[in-house]
């Protein structure tokens, strides 16, 4: 995958993710309508691909207004991934063509890898995660389950331990998928399924769209680092 193609895929997926987010804000009970109407219009401009450079700059400046409005990210990690993609894309468009452009886009790919690996590493160091007790607590009393009946999953220690190790194993082994393109595509499909499961069980739908938007960067990075098998 060429850099230009990966950038374009990322622009389209990011614009769609921001549009979905903006539509929710504009129609929700606590809508900051004018703020997100502006973002939606800029995303439509980015989707067309005309003046992408300027659309990205405008979205980057606009993102600062959104951060100030909510005194930080509205939805934690998913918003941060959206901003990381936006800033890396903007830099990769505006930095002088060559190694700097590539480094800015590669940084996004590296962060996608780290988002899985670090998340798995901190869990593997925690005895509560290794025993399944942490996942039990997520279901038992955290604010995340989307329905009260999902809390009934908590008192099943074997299932909690198995699910914990499945998540930990996938996350810490994810970087190995870079060794082969087919393996990477399979790993990204598993990762997408993982995000969809989190969206269904915990209501974290924005993670799905922002992480998907970052995947072209890792596919491009893999093709740059390792020749196709």
């Amino acid at each position: 995958m060429s850099l230009e193609l990966a950038q374009r895929f990322t622009e389209i997926l990011l614009a769609l993710a921001f549009l979905q987010q903006s539509a929710e804000h504009m129609s929700g009970p606590n809508a900051a309508r004018a703020l997100f109407l502006t973002r939606a219009v800029l995303c439509l401009a980015l989707l067309t691909g005309v003046y992408s450079d300027w659309s990205l700059v405008a979205l980057s400046i606009h993102s600062i207004a959104v951060l100030h409005r909510y005194n930080g990210p509205y939805n934690g990690g998913s918003d941060r991934m959206g901003l990381l993609i936006l800033y890396c894309l903007t830099l990769s468009h505006w930095l002088p063509e060559g190694p700097l452009t590539q480094t800015a886009f590669a940084y996004l790919g590296v962060q996608v890898i780290l988002s899985y690996f670090i998340s798995g590493w901190v869990k593997i160091l925690n005895p509560a995660w290794r025993s399944g007790a942490a996942l039990r607590d997520v279901f038992a009393f955290s604010a995340y389950p989307v329905a009260e009946n999902l809390r009934a999953l908590a008192p099943h220690p074997r299932a909690m331990r198995t699910a914990s190790w499945a998540v930990i194993g996938f996350e810490v082994l994810f970087p190995l998928a870079l060794l082969n393109q087919t393996l990477l595509i399979a790993a990204l499909a598993c990762a997408a399924a993982f995000h969809i499961a989190n969206a269904c069980l915990f209501g974290l739908n924005r993670f799905v769209w922002f992480w998907l938007a970052a995947y072209p960067s890792i596919l491009w990075l893999q093709s740059r680092l390792i020749a196709p098998a």
Partner: peptide, 22 residues
């Protein structure tokens, strides 16, 4: 503004490191 942007540029990615009181 820097304090708001930096965590996005240099994320920690420590999702659910511990499950605290909710």
């Amino acid at each position: 503004t820097c304090a708001l942007i930096l965590p996005a540029l240099i994320p920690s990615w420590r999702f659910f490191q511990t499950v605290e009181a909710s």
